[in-house]
Every structure is written in C-alpha cells, then in structure tokens.
Design a protein around this nucleic acid. Structure first.
Lengths: 231, 231
DNA sequence: TCAAAAGTGTTGCTGCTACACCCATGC
DNA sequence: GCATGGGTGTAGCAGCAACACTTTTGA
C-alpha cells in the first residue's frame, strides 16, 4: 500500500482546478431583502444571471479576492463579509473545473453606486423573486440565506443594511424580511430594549407614517459587546 | 474601467493554485476528545504533525475528495463528515499556493483500524494537548471545534463517537469533553429523556463502576426527527 | 464498612409568547 | 373625523439552573 501523501503529491503535479469566489450581496430596500446579481457579459452562458464572481489571484488571500471582486463590481469597500463555504462538485460548472468559495455581505443600498451597478449590467432582485441562475448559484443562495438567518438571530448583524439613523419599524421589517416571518412588535422592542445598544434620538422620521417614528442609532461600544443577543 | 469578468478571465489562464482538503477526525476515548494527526512523510516539513490532508482530483467532487482522503488514511468509510470552511491565505503554505477546504468527522475509535493508523504514522492526540502543527492547521482545528460545539448543542450529532450501546455517564462525558465544561447530571438526563430518542436496555455496563450503569441505544427513527434538540 | 459511581425531583427564576388598545397626524 | 402606522404592558407558561441524598456493589 502506498502512503497517501505520495499518491497525492504525484497527482498534484497535474491538478487543473480553478479557484473562484462568488459574492452574495444582500441589500434591504422598501421592506424587501434583495440580492445583487450580474448578467454575464461573456460566454459561456452569456446574458444569464449570476452571482458576482471572479477568479482568485495567485498571490491573493481568498478573503481579499472576495473583497476585490466586490469592490470591482460595486465600488463598495470596507464591507463586513464572511465566508459561507466552498462549493466543489466536479460538474458544478459544466464547462471547466472550478471550485468556488462563497462570501456573503450585507450592504446599505443607498451607499451603493448605482451608476456603477448599471454599467456592469448588475441588478437587484427581491430574494423571493430571483431569476434563473447559472450553475449551482441557487444552492449558494440557499446556503447563504440559511446562514444569514442563523447569524441574524444570534448576534448583531443585519444592521449594516440600515442607514445610520433608523426607526424601529424599519429594523423590524428588516428582520422580518431576513427571517421570512412576522414578528410581534412589542416583543421585538422589548428584546432590543433589554439589550441596550440602541440610542433613541430626538428626531422622528415622518416619511413612512403621519405620526412619525422615532429615529435611533447604535451605541457602537455596547453594540460590539452584546452578550446575550437573541431575536 | 474594465469589466471585472474580463479581468478575471484573462487572469484565470495563468492561475496556479492547488486545491487540497484537510480532514479533522475527532474521536472519543477514555473521557477525552481526541484528534487524529499524521506525521508528514515527505518534504517540506517532514516529520512534523499535520491534519489528514490531500489534493483534490480533477474529476472529483470536493466532498468526495475529503472522503477518499479519510478512507485512504483510516480505512473508515461511510462517515458523517461535513465541510467546515475554506482556508485560503496566500501564504498559509509558505512553499506553494494551496487553498484547503476543511471537513470534520466524528468517528468511533474502536471501528478504526489501528494497524492502518500506525502504518501511516498517524496518532491520536487529546484535543487539549496537541503537538505543534504545520501551517494554519491549529486555526483549522479552532474553527472546527467552534463549529462542533455549536452543532452538538443544537442537534443530535456526537453520538457517532459512541458505540452502539452506551451508558448515560459515557454520553455525558462526551458532551463535557466536546463543550469543555461540566454538565449537571440530573439536568442532562432530564433533557435527554424529554427528547425521547433513547431506549433503555436491560443490561448494565460494569466496567466503569461497581454498581454498573444501564446501557442505552438510539431509537433511530426518533433520533433522526428530533425537533427541539437542545443540550 | 467504606469508597466510588449511578441514579433520582423539586423549586425558583428567567425569558418567551400571546395578546388589545390608545396616540399622533395628515388628509 | 377617519385612516394609517407608531407606540406601550401584562400574565401565563415553559424551560433552565441550582441543588443533596440514596443506592449498589466490589474490594
């Protein structure tokens, strides 16, 4: 019997696998959770919808590759993004062998350069009304959504999707959009209050109702040290 | 400004990144959680300890590669294994550019072919007393442990680490080893009982105490459909 | 007879869920 | 004055943590 590392070493000389990253950019708009997709500008599968992806450079950290690709396609920088997982079925891309590592990000749509989006034929789609996607990109989205739902319940993420000042109804709608379920208003507020990282401002936002809703912002320090976060 | 996919396409032609998998094989022995490591039999870093890893074949699913590597090194087949995540720092392997996707598995040590282990210079190490490891393997272990702790609290995994018939004290020790903390005996049993997937047998195991502890086995059907698992 | 591990219930507390009405305002 | 969305409190219940003693038996 041979030693496995020898087997692998020998094999490795001829390995021909390309490494890619795909980014899942979630945005929140008008009560809906949206995902940014691009229309492929090259063959194969030209003009079909796809996640924002690109190949990794030889001297580039995987995480950096994801950020670079994101920046190239959106102008967004300094975004909180984390790896979901690698997708590596041999035939996931029927044209060539590519493994792809997915990253997910939450962005505030208004910070986003809309011109840039259009110039790349990128478009936002409501998460529950996505077009047909190439390869296993739908599976990637499902995995990222599942992860997002888990993360959002157990820690203070998702706030990236809101402007600096926001109202509680907005925040609640965000959670409802991500979790795909309705939340009781009173219970939601109670929990947030008990976690004590929101600062109530003396301003109201009247764009969404006649009465107006108080604006809040984060207490950055407390926000970063929330212990028992739980929605 | 160029379109990113064109940039990437051009770049891709010269991409030289090797794709590997690394397996984290957890076993449970004598009250301790252990991890299987191998001593590298080739340069560079010959004779240093390492996770069980190998390179992915061109026509092989990533998951299959992990299973193959595991089988080659341990003789174990049909093991529940899942991806942790990809590690892709450019300099993680200082000798060449390799990205590695980690997988973690829980195995029952007695099913494990001990001769095979030795022939590959593999060895079990207690999780809290690991040797120095190459590259970023320590970081991989930390990530896998974190994941394992999360998984083990929220679903019925970890039972793979026990023989078909086992005692409640054994099961409790397993959880304590994984979570790294003591658990109250009565509360632990109460929870397990309420989840109702254990079958109490009419036999006792007397190897660990004079009084002897009742043996249990899983009710496979119920085990797979536990709703509110929670330790 | 004693040492060592197995087994067993209760109580208080915390945190969750469920639920209904008044308020402020623009039209 | 009414329609629209914003804001507030309570009570019952479930699940969790904390806690101590008895049982069995081999040596």
């Amino acid at each position: 019997m041979q030693k496995p590392f020898q087997i692998n070493r020998a094999y490795k000389e001829v390995q021909q696998i390309t490494v890619a990253v795909d980014c899942l950019i979630f945005g929140f708009n008008d009560g809906n959770l949206e995902l940014l997709l691009v229309s492929r500008s090259f063959e194969p599968e030209r003009d079909r919808w796809s996640l924002i992806g690109g190949f990794v450079h030889n001297d580039e950290d995987l995480d950096d590759a994801a950020h670079r690709v994101l920046t190239e396609l959106t102008g967004l920088d300094d975004v909180y993004m984390e790896q979901v997982r690698a997708f590596g079925k041999a035939k996931r891309d029927p044209y060539e062998r590519v493994i792809s590592v997915t990253y997910s990000a939450l962005v505030l749509k208004k910070d986003y350069n809309d011109e840039l989006v259009k110039s790349y034929k990128a478009e936002w789609f409501p998460i529950d009304n996505l077009p047909e996607l190439i390869f296993d990109h739908k599976e990637m989205i499902d995995a990222a959504m599942k992860r997002l739902r888990r993360r959002v319940k157990s820690g203070p993420v998702g706030f990236n999707l809101l402007p600096e000042k926001f109202t509680l109804p907005q925040l609640q709608k965000l959670y409802e959009a991500i979790l795909g379920e309705e939340i009781d208003k009173r219970n939601f507020r109670k929990k947030l209050n008990s976690m004590d990282f929101l600062i109530k401002l003396n301003e109201k936002d009247k764009t969404e109702s006649k009465k107006g809703a108080y604006l809040y912002k984060f207490d950055e320090d407390k926000y970063n040290y929330v212990k028992n976060f739980n929605i």
